[in-house]
Nucleic acid binder design. Structure first.
Lengths: 292, 292
DNA sequence: TCGGCGCGTGAAAGTAAGTTTCATGCGTGG
DNA sequence: CCACGCATGAAACTTACTTTCACGCGCCGA
């Protein structure tokens, strides 16, 4: 089985790399096919660094050496079926874009984020997390900014199938609540960059109380990994602020969906019942036909 | 430039090759991926010949040298991997599904929702909505339950690029706020089913005050369409409660992304500036490296 | 029968590519 | 301000790849 998305993996690891390695990584991600054609000296020169750094880069992404990198890159580049109009799909929207273009670009990027995230998602880690969620007497989910919505969404979903889950938008409440967690409880921290101080702090508290901690981030080597028992990663290749966190959310939600379905699947009957009951509860707020 | 069918080409000129080269060729054709992994010495040994012959073989098939062969082989091998059997992809998760299956199914459904939504999204309506958003002095977004997160997300996004936008989780606040809208303002109601009474009520109030109303729903013929000037539709094919609103969210968010980018694109410079400023604002909350 | 001739071949020499080691310099924390 | 650790490239080193060359075998003409 072809191991998933080397390119994707590289972009995830990017911030964890040293500056010189990042230069190499960027070249590789920008044009994998071209990189595969180059010799190590060539690539090193292009990245304005030494061969040694290129080798280090190979090791950083989990490969034996440079020839392995070349081969993997060639393979990936070949597999990539270029969509009809590959011009649209760069990261950014061209200034004069009309709406048809905008929609196509966004759909492509969003769908890619979902697919690539799924591709690199580790089933075993998912399994472990679901196991923990299933056995937890209390579940807490943390996230700030855009990740806060995801946290909130997950909380609501779990709650809907009868699992006790909390989301605290406010750090102080979160900290105090985390302090009350104990062994068997689960704390989930969501942070795209993996560097959100507040979330890290809360997770750390939760962990110190004996709770199982889970991180959901795009960057597996980021600080949040240090305070998490399980790390789940997304694969959104978006520049940090430019596009304002559009694809990353979807990637996070995809992971949430997987976990949710996993938990629900454990108690199929109970979950279905709970969903029906909750659906019934809001039915009175539904409008069948509108007057006039 | 990567002319297709290296393997084919090799088997074609197989009889023209010398015996020792033929042994090499046969190995290569039998398992290209494996050959790509081997070093020249390795392959030579496996073919019971010398490295020199392998090089000659490379030249015979029109390649520069052995590394080139490896890369071409890796590329070809990758391309002929048949698409992962997507036959898992019915709507529902089978009871005994393991996590690999769950992930594949969800990713497929989620990605489909995104793509299909984009496909049927009307660029002209988008354009009109963006136009309205752009000229609005105030923007209000409504949504209940799962759609509330989407509303909230959109509100936050617009706010981040300097547009005045509100989201009221509470119906009462929403109603009072809507009553204060006027001509030129925009009210957006989000409801998957299009039958969420609260949202309809608020939209109606907004409309009666002269605001431009926009609906985002999966069902264009639903009641919400009656109170909206513009209707944007998603294309999530999920049964109402069973899967607990997983794909519909993503579809809604995709639409939100399109609108957001559309608005941002109108005032490129200003939006970028705003994003940078807001990113800067949270920078102090970022952790660079974790102690211990 | 024998001596050339040419071709396929691998051994070995040669070169280039990839890898390791190490000293340096820079930034960080004590 | 010093010590430490980390990132980095220069250079030494190893491995992989390429070239050279000579051997041997089969064919042909004497």
């Amino acid at each position: 089985m072809p191991e998933p998305g080397l390119i994707v993996q590289i972009s995830g690891l990017l911030p964890a790399l040293s500056p010189a390695e990042q230069r190499v990584a960027r070249l590789v991600v920008a044009d994998p096919a071209d990189a595969a054609r180059r010799t190590i000296t060539d690539l090193a020169t292009a990245a304005e660094t030494s061969e040694a750094t290129v080798i280090r880069f190979c090791r950083s992404v989990g490969l034996e050496g440079y020839p392995q990198l070349r081969i993997r890159l060639a393979a990936e580049a070949a597999r990539r079926v270029e969509p009809p109009d590959a011009r649209v799909v760069g990261g950014d929207i061209p200034p004069g874009a009309d709406f048809t273009q905008i929609i196509a670009t966004i759909a492509f990027n969003d769908a890619r984020a979902v697919e690539e995230t799924a591709q690199q998602l580790d089933p075993e880690v998912c399994e472990a997390v679901v196991e923990a969620l299933n056995g937890a007497s209390r579940i807490e989910i943390y996230g700030a900014g855009a990740s806060g919505f995801v946290a909130s969404d997950f909380q609501q979903k779990l709650h809907r199938i009868g699992r006790t889950a909390y989301y605290w938008p406010d750090v102080h409440s979160a900290l105090t609540s985390a302090a009350l967690l104990g062994k068997g409880d689960v704390a989930i921290g969501i942070s795209h960059t993996g560097t959100t101080g507040d979330v890290l702090d809360v997770l750390e508290v939760a962990r110190s109380r004996g709770a199982t901690t889970v991180a959901l981030t795009n960057f597996p080597r980021s600080p949040i990994a240090d305070v998490a028992d399980h790390v789940l990663t997304t694969a959104a290749r978006e520049t940090t602020y430019r596009s304002g966190a559009t694809a990353s959310r979807l990637a996070q939600l995809t992971v949430v969906d997987c976990l949710f379905v996993g938990v629900a699947a454990r108690n199929r009957a109970k979950a279905r019942k709970a969903l029906e009951v909750t659906a019934e509860a809001v039915r009175s707020r539904r409008v069948v036909r509108r007057r006039g």
